[in-house]
Each structure stands twice: as structure tokens, then as C-alpha cells.
Design a protein around this nucleic acid. Structure first.
Lengths: 259, 259
DNA sequence: TGACGTCACTTGTCCTTACGAGTTACGACT
DNA sequence: AGTCGTAACTCGTAAGGACAAGTGACGTCA
């Protein structure tokens, strides 16, 4: 089991041996791996080689290393927080989101004026550098402790058409949906999901472990004429959260794929 | 601009300086960074320190390094392949998926018998180690060259109820939908989206660059009594693909969040 | 008994040196 | 003119040493 294979660089052989030992169950989840010194002796390699192998396994998200303690097999921990991306209406015409009341706001949401980037502008049907209201929230799931960054963007043009929004643009999403509906819009939403590695500031505010990507969800609320009204961005560590959608077949034949 | 900040380890200061230079635009996307030797001179540090800083930036997905050539600023490349996760029915009762005909199959799909894992069993409403049909496909997008791994799992019980499936279980998803519908099922689908770092074999078959997570989508087709019928898994590099969903408000009030 | 200091262990950082391997361009030889 | 080898660059791998910093246990001292 501790044998070293032929192919590739030495540190890759060491990494492959440790990886195989982990996947085979020889090293159980949450258990302590041999120390660097022990691995040096076990495979007869130098410390840089061992550290290089360990760095590779960290980048794969297989192990966690704690200064002064050692390397631990990461518990792949399937069960996570499932975010149901549905929106419902109650009988008294309020909007409700399945996970809505499980989140706690870590601090007062901060409102500000900002401008669209190329990406956010495209989603809102605006050019770059258009003025919008922004509202940032840091959400914490009460049960799991999972953290999420939430941002709402509202174009000035949309807010000005709805006095309640222009007056207080930083409201919870479901409240904004209600206001827009009362303004005569029949809402539907489009979401795009992306995954990427976090920037350093996202890594710290979301308290992410090594090699943990984030899910980046952009939800656009569409109203009359299918015009984009608001944009919500949700960023959450992919180690603890998954997204859930419901799909039903629509009747129109799909248009031809890109020409 | 080449100044080194105070906080943290030397290599982190170097990494922060380079990162700031990239984000400020001093180093444009796709441009060549200074070589390791030049960075050693610029910051008066040793080569391991420079390499450690570069390794940190690689893990963040900010740069790509090519052996013998140098380090390049990764073009953050927003525009990607958008996978519309919708399902439509044509007038002649076929099912169509928006991106369906843009994919090419890299090789013959392989059918086999396998068993559910804990995760796939849960999604199919089965226990662990239940026998199922499996069908793997490697898909390549004709336009962008993006690669995706696709797998369909069909429980024996479901296939046996539909002779066409038991006879030839490895059919395209839309064909399976049609067969199930002709068998009397009124279909709807649930999808769960996760992101994680790829395993080594996924890294190679999907040809992923460094620090690139994968999107892992599991789609379950539900039929009569909302019983799970089939499971499709799609794995694709998050550097080139994004998922798109459409949401409409449903009427039922959402149940209380977990107690 | 309690508090605290020390020590032995862990990983983190940083340096020096050496050579292997991929890339490119230049120049000499045919 | 064309071909090919070499040289000079790049990053990759590997070894050695030294010290800093976090952790936990043990033992001493009050």
C-alpha cells in the first residue's frame, strides 16, 4: 500500500500513493495523516518533495492541514445546505422563498450607489457604468453556520418608477418582489449559475477552506415586457451548499441552436 | 506599484503585489508576467519565495504557467457556454433541449451495469448498492470545444417496466423522456447543482486548467406519483460553462423551513 | 491543587544549490 | 536555401539546511 508507482515526478508518485491510501479507506476521513517527517522516512524523499505532494492534495481538496497539528483527511461531507431556488406566493399575496427564514443577517445591510460592470450591466439590459442602487448583505445559516454574500442591484430608472423603492431601496428580496407586483408587474426570474475560485476577500468573509470553489448565482427579476428589473447576486461556498431547481416542460419548440 | 506591503509572509507580500498589479491592469490579460528570475530581482527574494507566490496565484486561478514559456495572466473570460436547463416539447411530441444539438459525442456511449452509491441512490429513491443501468458519454461542444461528462442511470425496475428501455437502455436523454411519456408518465424534473474541485481523472478527460472547479448537475426525471425514474449527471468545467434557469412563482405557500 | 513555563512535536517560511525539461532563436553546416 | 544543432532562455524537480510559529503535554513551582 505504501509502494511508489513509476510514472511522473517523485512528488506526484508520493501524492498518488497518499491519494490512493485515502480513497481506499486506509486513511479514514477526519483522521490524522503521517507527519511530514514520517512521510519523508516512509517514501525516502526530502521534505520539499513531501510538502510538494501535500500541496497537490490540498489543491485537490482532499486534505486539510493545520499549523502545528498535522494533515487531516477532509470528510467529503456530502450532506450540505440545499438552497431551493423556488419562489412561492402565499394567499395574502406575499412572496416566500423556501430558505428565506433560515438565514440570519450578520450585520445591517449597507446601501450605496454604484455603477454597473460589464457583466451586471448585461444582465440588467444596461450599458457599462450605469448608475444603480446596491445593497449588500452577509447571511449566516442558523443551523449549519454556512455564510453567504448577497447583493441586490436596482437600476435608478426602476427605483424612480416605484416611490417605495426610491425611498428605501435596501429591502429583502421578497419585499421588493411584492412592491414590484403591486406596481403592476407580473414577475418571472432567470438565474445563471457559475462556479469559480474565490478572491482573497471572499475567502475570508465566507471563511472558506482550501481548494473550495464558490457558487455564484445571479437572479434577474423580469417584469412587464420581460424587461429586467432587479439583479440579485448570491455567493456561497460550494463545500456546504447546493442549489435545487424544478423543471417542467414548456410547449414551444426550442429555437435552433446558435447558427 | 512594485512595492511590497507589510503584512504576512514574504511570499504573500509578493503574491499580493503581483495580484494588485494584475487587478489594476498593469499586467493585461493574456500578457506575459516577468520571469521568475526577474521577480527575484524585482523583490529581492529567493526563487522558492517567488515560486511560492506564483503557486498562490495559480491556486486562485489568476495566472496560467506554461513550462518553458512563462506565466500568463488568465483572461477572466466571462463569456462562456450557457447551458439552458430547459426542456421543451415539440408539436410532434418529441422532447427538445436548447443545447441538445450543439453537442458532439466524442465516442460511442458505453453501457454497463452498475450499482447505486449512497448519493445516487438517495436521488433515485433507492438504497445503496441497488443495481442500475449506466450509460456514459463524453460530450464536446462543437463551437467552443468545451467538454462535458454525461451519465445516465436507470434503475432495473424502471427499465423492466418499459421494454424499449430494457432492450436498449443507452439512449439520448430526450429519447428516454419520450419513451417514458409514451409509457404513461407525465414528467417533471428536479436538478441539484454542486461545485467542487475535479478528481485527477476528471481533470484530464475534461482538459481543465489549474484551479478550475467543475459544475456537477444531477437531474432526476419524475413520473407518475412523482416517483424518480432516471438520473442524469453532468460534469463540466466551470471555466467555460454556466447554467441558466427560468423560475416562475408557484401558488402554494412554502412549507416552514426545517424545524 | 492550581498555574505557568518549558519542551517536544507539528507545519510554515526562507534560503542556497543543482540539474532536468520545454521553448525559441540563431547560426553553422550541408 | 534548407536543415539541424546548439545556446540561452523559460519553468519543473529535488536536495540540503536553518529558524519561526502554532499546539499540546508534561512537570515544576507556588
Amino acid at each position: 500500500m505504501t509502494e511508489i508507482q513509476r510514472p511522473g515526478a517523485l512528488y506526484q508518485q508520493v501524492a498518488a500513493a497518499i491519494r490512493a491510501a485515502i480513497l481506499s479507506g486506509e486513511f479514514a476521513p477526519d483522521s490524522l495523516l503521517p507527519s511530514e517527517a514520517q512521510l519523508m522516512a516512509r517514501y525516502s524523499v526530502s521534505r520539499p518533495t513531501v510538502r510538494n505532494a501535500i500541496a497537490a492534495l490540498r489543491a485537490e481538496g482532499l486534505i486539510d492541514v493545520r499549523h502545528g497539528k498535522g494533515s487531516f483527511v477532509r470528510s467529503s461531507g456530502q450532506p450540505t445546505l440545499t438552497l431551493e431556488r423556488r419562489i412561492s406566493r402565499t394567499t395574502d399575496s406575499k412572496f416566500v422563498m423556501p430558505n428565506g427564514d433560515a438565514w440570519q443577517e450578520a450585520e445591517e445591510p449597507s446601501t450605496y450607489r454604484t455603477r454597473t460592470t460589464k457583466a451586471t450591466g448585461r444582465l440588467l439590459g444596461l450599458a457599462e457604468e450605469e448608475a444603480v442602487f446596491g445593497c449588500d448583505r452577509l447571511l449566516i445559516d442558523a443551523a449549519t453556520g454556512a455564510r453567504a454574500m448577497h447583493r441586490t442591484l436596482i437600476p435608478f430608472e426602476v427605483a424612480e418608477a416605484v416611490p417605495v423603492l426610491a425611498d428605501e431601496p435596501c429591502q429583502p428580496p421578497v419585499a421588493i418582489y411584492r412592491v414590484l407586483t403591486q406596481d403592476g408587474h407580473k414577475l418571472w426570474w432567470s438565474e445563471t449559475v457559475r462556479a469559480r475560485m474565490p478572491l482573497p476577500d471572499e475567502r475570508t468573509t465566507l471563511q472558506l477552506p482550501d481548494a473550495t470553489p464558490i457558487l455564484h448565482v445571479a437572479r434577474v427579476a423580469h417584469g412587464a415586457d420581460d424587461r429586467p428589473l432587479t439583479l440579485e447576486e448570491l455567493r456561497i461556498g460550494a463545500d456546504r451548499a447546493e442549489l435545487a431547481y424544478r423543471i417542467t416542460a414548456d410547449k414551444q419548440p426550442a429555437r435552433r441552436a446558435r447558427t
